[in-house]
Design a protein around this nucleic acid. Structure first.
Lengths: 101, 101
DNA sequence: CTGAAACATTCATAGTATTGAATTTAGATT
DNA sequence: AATCTAAATTCAATACTATGAATGTTTCAG
């Protein structure tokens, strides 16, 4: 890992960290890791109320980390930048024991 | 990677993301990855002024991510929680090409 | 003790983020 | 059209973060 490589990237990388710096957003990305899910599914799985959930999803969408697809009255979200999962997995390893998968 | 594992850890993990959500802090951790360094060394390597550097180091120390050791008038910092480096490396991979080391 | 070097701290201000409450839009159903 | 459900938006209050300017502390040299 090279520091001088990181210097020009540090601004963008820090932005990503800011996007991940909320428990609910982190959990959403974690839950979307494997497969796309509807807002309702995410709410049930994570126990998050409607308004906050929508707010966090909007933020993640604005930051380009997730993408949405509508199907009837439901909206399905999916990860838009897979490399984000590497970071989430590193966190999982750090906080939930070292299993990498 | 398991979502229910992450639910109780999400608060702590988000805190870590907040700690990393500043370009200078990110670079400091990156630069301390391999070895401990003095404040002066860090300043020179990263091109950061005295006060901001001290402020970021204080913040990282308050968050428990680095530890300090004094030697004469110099203070040397080192990574206090190695698992942080996994996250930094994931970032490096995401933003600087896929090399993991 | 005095001064210089290396770090740390304080303070004020401006910018961002979080949260809850209320409201609104979009699509489906009757 | 009326209405129900799912999701999105707005708004206001509060709290957090970043930044620069000024100042304080610790250690060593003389």
């Amino acid at each position: 890992m090279n520091v001088s490589d990181m210097i020009p990237a540090s601004e963008q990388a820090a932005e990503l960290m800011r996007a991940l710096s909320h428990p609910q957003r982190l959990l959403v990305l974690c839950a979307l890791g494997a497969e796309e899910k509807s807002v309702a599914q995410l709410r049930e799985e994570l126990g998050i109320e409607q308004v906050p959930m929508s707010q966090q999803l909007m933020r993640l969408r604005a930051d380009g980390l997730v993408a949405a697809r509508r199907e009837g009255t439901s909206v399905f979200y999916r990860i838009a930048r897979p490399e984000v999962l590497d970071v989430v997995e590193a966190l999982h390893g750090a906080f939930c024991g070292k299993a990498k998968a």
